[in-house]
């Protein structure tokens, strides 16, 4: 299969394969993305995050359906945790998006966190680029909002929707530290439950504490199951987008994002090389033994490793 030709021909199978190759860290995939990089930048990227069980998939499903009504092409990247014990995963987000499976204007991809050395962020970045090249107008990234790597992923988005549900109570307290900052819009899902208003008010109160910039994230009560509040939610996404462009915040964010991505890729490469050094040579063990025997201090040992690393790079 000629992946690049397929991708440029809007072949879903080629796109799907390319995403896998990015996920698996295959150098060929990077080469293809390099060659097509000019074609990226069309899609709007929306992050959907929040604690487990708040209905993120349903929110994504309904937003996608609404956008489809408007004739937009929609890509979805849904991330679920990989089991740290077996390396396997059950990726079940499609269950709530079953009607979208058949829609030619939709592309859904499920992804496991796989957990190895920050590769996730690169894989998600890669998938988003592929879907962008494929011509999607909107791309959703859906992921559980716990853990740093997941938060890193949604930082990729132009707009982040934080999904909550009534009665989270202590959970909100526990998670606010990390995630209150990254939400551009707060959606309180399942708002037919008791306490929906109170939860919204609690979030507003926390926003008073945590946010002081010009843009204040709106808080919206929705019932995704019944499609209630979905149109309004999309309006808020558009408003946020307008604000970002008007204020120049988008350009700043985008620059930061690109910086972060370069650093990410760089770190990945460094880690890979370091890994191969420690795998292929005995140097780490030797250094460790020397530090143990007090022949060396750990700082000098690390310096030695950096020398080794630089040599390795030069030889490549």
């Amino acid at each position: 299969m000629d992946i690049k030709a397929g991708l440029l021909n809007n072949d879903k199978r080629a796109a799907a394969r390319l995403i896998s190759m990015m996920e698996n860290g295959e150098p060929e995939a990077v080469q293809i993305i390099k060659e097509c990089y000019n074609m990226t930048g069309h899609a709007r990227i929306i992050g959907i995050t929040g604690p487990p069980g708040v209905g993120k998939s349903t929110v994504t499903d309904k937003l996608a359906k609404q956008l489809r009504k408007e004739g937009k092409q929609v890509g979805i990247v849904a991330v679920d945790p990989t089991s740290p014990f077996t390396g396997g995963a059950i990726l079940g987000d499609r269950v709530r998006m079953a009607d979208l499976n058949n829609d030619p204007g939709v592309f859904i991809r499920s992804m496991g966190t796989r957990g190895a050395l920050g590769g996730l962020s690169k894989a998600v970045h890669g998938a988003v680029k592929v879907l962008d090249i494929l011509g999607m107008d909107y791309i959703f990234i859906e992921t559980v909002g716990v853990g740093q790597s997941e938060i890193d992923i949604v930082k990729l988005a132009d707009t982040v929707i934080m999904v909550m549900v009534p009665g989270l109570g202590d959970d909100i307290q526990a998670i606010k530290a990390g995630i209150m900052e990254i939400g551009d819009i707060f959606a309180v899902n399942k708002s037919d439950r008791d306490d929906a208003e109170r939860t919204a008010a609690e979030i507003e109160a926390m926003l008073d504490f945590n946010r002081d910039e010009e843009y204040r994230p709106p808080v919206l009560n929705i019932i995704a199951r019944d499609s209630k509040g979905i149109e309004k939610l999309l309006e808020l996404v558009e408003k946020h987008w307008e604000y970002e462009n008007r204020s120049g915040s988008y350009k700043k964010k985008k620059l930061n994002r690109v910086r972060a991505e370069i650093m990410d890729i760089f770190r990945d490469e460094v880690m890979k090389t370091l890994y191969s050094i420690s795998e292929n040579t005995n140097i780490i063990n030797e250094l460790a033994q020397k530090v143990m025997d007090k022949q060396m201090d750990p700082y000098s040992a690390a310096d030695r490793l950096i020398d080794e690393f630089t040599n390795n790079q030069r030889n490549n």
């Binding site: 879903k12 199978r13 799907a16 394969r17 995403i19 896998s20 990989t82 089991s83 077996t86 390396g87 396997g88 995963a89 059950i90 990726l91 079940g92 499609r94 269950v95 079953a98 499976n101 058949n102 592309f107 859904i108 991809r109 499920s110 496991g112």
Partner: peptide, 28 residues
């Protein structure tokens, strides 16, 4: 399958053959 280290994309009930084939392709 998960416990054997595989990534399982679970689709839920009432899938048409078209939906299943499309899922398999998008999920590579």
């Amino acid at each position: 399958l998960r416990d054997a280290g595989m990534e399982v994309i679970y689709t839920g009930l009432r899938q048409t053959p078209e939906q299943i084939a499309e899922t398999a392709i998008q999920e590579d």
